[in-house]
Amino acid sequence: MSTVDNSVSGAVPGAPAPRRQPAWLKLWPVQALLFLALLVAVWAVTEALNLVIPAYQGQILLFTGINVIITLGLNLITGVTGQLSLGHAAFMAIGAYAAAICTVSLHLPFALALLLGGLVAALFGVVLGFPTLRLSGDYLAIATLGFAEIVRVVNTNLKITNGAIGYYGIQKRVDLPLVAMLAVAAVAAMAWLENSRNGRAMRSVREDEIAATASGVNTTFYKIQAFAVGAFFAGVGGGLYAHTTTFIQPTDFGFLKSVEQLSMVVLGGMGSIAGTVLGTIVLTAAPELLRFMSNYRMLVYGATLIVLMIFRPGGLLGGVDLRDAVRRALMLGRSRTVRTSVGGDGQ
């Protein structure tokens, strides 16, 4: 893993502030308000864009947004915490079915259904988190694969999911502004999580579990937490997916879906939020952008993957950190990057 990691040493206590920030900016209510303002701004902008962008391109953007939310969850599990998961689509399936059942059978409001979908998925994330205490690497990958198969088979046989026939009659509730807002919120939440003490602990689990334990990091806790949070994101994404396509089947969330999501994370750059977002954009848009090649479309898609991985083995943005860019733009708190770049300005 060649990710440039500056966050572990990010908060050096007592380091001189490079640029004076107003004290009120550091208050959490102010930051929360700023964050809300950002979300509202995103909503307003996409609402306006929605009028301009043709529906087809809007639809692609919408799926991209949903996939971003899901792959950010996988990035937390696999990229940040280093637990290779081949069963992320299972969490998406759980969230999709849970949210769909909530709105269709239980007549719950859509927002609550999305949240519940995410929470149910998170619950299963905790369940799957436990094997990770004993397994690692390839062995864990096989266990997650097995978990995904179990979820698929259970969904195929349960009555409440309507079995193999699939769950239909879901109302279309998703539009671009909603997805854009949630995707931005997901990026911000991930950036905040990864840059916190919690996130640094997760990274330490990835870098060296034994050393992390020796330094007093409760690796069990952080691994299960990564699975829970990652699954939550996948669950919310699944709920959005179900309310976009209006019809879901167990086969929609098979092994290939998990591999596709892992490809997005790996292609973008494991452990990098910006990379994950970019990888997801590329792999979601590629099948549509390549339509002019008609029958050679999927061939070129595969070849593109191979070529990219040969020339960028660390992923497209392996080593690039979106968090610092966001911080600089919003002047939220301090990080070493700010210091360095400000120092650079002074030269």
């Binding site: 977002v277 970019l278 954009i281 848009a285 990057t337």
Partner: peptide, 20 residues
């Protein structure tokens, strides 16, 4: 890194434009 970040944003923008 920040130059790369900028590049990434450019790429994203280019992608969006080409989709549109």
């Amino acid at each position: 890194l920040s130059a790369k970040g900028f590049l990434a944003l450019l790429l994203v923008a280019a992608m969006a434009v080409s989709v549109a």
